[in-house]
């Protein structure tokens, strides 16, 4: 059996199960009427009032602070040494790479020719 056909069958299984679970939920929802009590529908803030602005987190504070604690050194090297945004810095890196690749490949071919 082709693995991609297996993939399609598995997707069918997945969607069948998901549909049956989802329809259970819809049935349950229909079954009991929903009580609309205004105070219940505010976001939970441990007893504090939360405004709309406080509910969400900015994209900068999302998880990057956590990751930068762990990978701090690596990130600093990447940002300060490599991705400086200065054209001259990029060129030095790119030219170093060019010189390395030319020297290595020519050396290898010379080894092949004379060795």
């Amino acid at each position: 059996m082709n693995v991609l056909i297996v993939m399609i069958k598995l997707t069918v299984i997945m969607i069948l199960v998901a549909l049956s679970l989802y329809s259970t939920y819809i049935y349950v929802r229909k079954h009991r009427g929903i009580i609309k009590a205004k105070y219940k529908f505010q976001p939970y803030g441990c007893g504090e009032e939360l405004t709309r602005e406080q509910v969400s987190v900015g994209s900068r504070g999302l998880y990057w602070s956590v990751v930068s604690k762990v990978f701090n050194k690596l990130y600093m090297i990447l940002r300060e040494k490599i991705h400086t945004g200065v054209l001259g810095d990029w060129f030095s890196l790119m030219i170093i790479f060019l010189v390395v690749i030319v020297i290595v490949l020519i050396a290898l071919s010379l080894i092949g020719v004379f060795g």
Partner: peptide, 17 residues
């Protein structure tokens, strides 16, 4: 001449860069 290989290597290096 085998030195053609050296030329090929240099060309490949520069072109791929």
């Amino acid at each position: 001449t085998p030195m053609i290989a050296v030329g090929g290597a240099a060309a490949l290096a520069l072109a791929l860069w």
